[in-house]
Amino acid sequence: MKDRALEWATFADKVVRIAGKKIIEIRRESRIEVAYKNAGEIVTSADLASDQIIREAIASSYPKHGILSEETTDGVWAKNIFEGPLWIIDPLDGTVNYSRNLPYFAISVAIAVDGVVWAGAVHAPDLGVTYVGIRGGGSRCNGEQLHVHCFETLSEAVIGTGFP
Rank of each mutant, 00 (worst) to 15 (best):
T130Y: 04
G115F: 12
V122N: 09
L127Q: 13
G120T: 09
A124D: 02
A124V: 00
V116P: 04
G128C: 14
A124C: 05
T130C: 07
G143S: 10
E144W: 01
V129E: 10
A119F: 06
C141T: 11
V132S: 06
V113A: 05
Y131L: 13
V129S: 02
H123K: 10
G133Y: 05
P125V: 11
Y131A: 12
G128D: 10
G128P: 08
G143N: 06
V132M: 06
D114Q: 02
A119T: 00
G120S: 07
A121T: 02
V113L: 07
G115M: 08
S139W: 09
T130S: 07
N142T: 01
G120D: 10
R135A: 14
G133I: 07
G137V: 02
V116A: 14
D114E: 11
G120L: 03
V122D: 05
S139Q: 03
G137Q: 08
L127F: 08
N142S: 01
R140G: 03
G137K: 06
T130G: 08
S139N: 02
L127H: 09
G138V: 03
V117C: 15
V132D: 03
W118M: 13
G138H: 05
G120Y: 10
R135V: 00
G133D: 05
H123V: 03
V132A: 02
A124G: 07
A119Q: 03
G115T: 13
T130W: 05
S139A: 09
G115K: 14
G136T: 13
I134D: 06
G143R: 11
H123E: 13
V113E: 15
G138Y: 06
D114S: 09
A119M: 05
R135W: 11
H123P: 07
G133K: 09
P125Y: 13
G136V: 09
S139Y: 02
A119Y: 00
A121G: 09
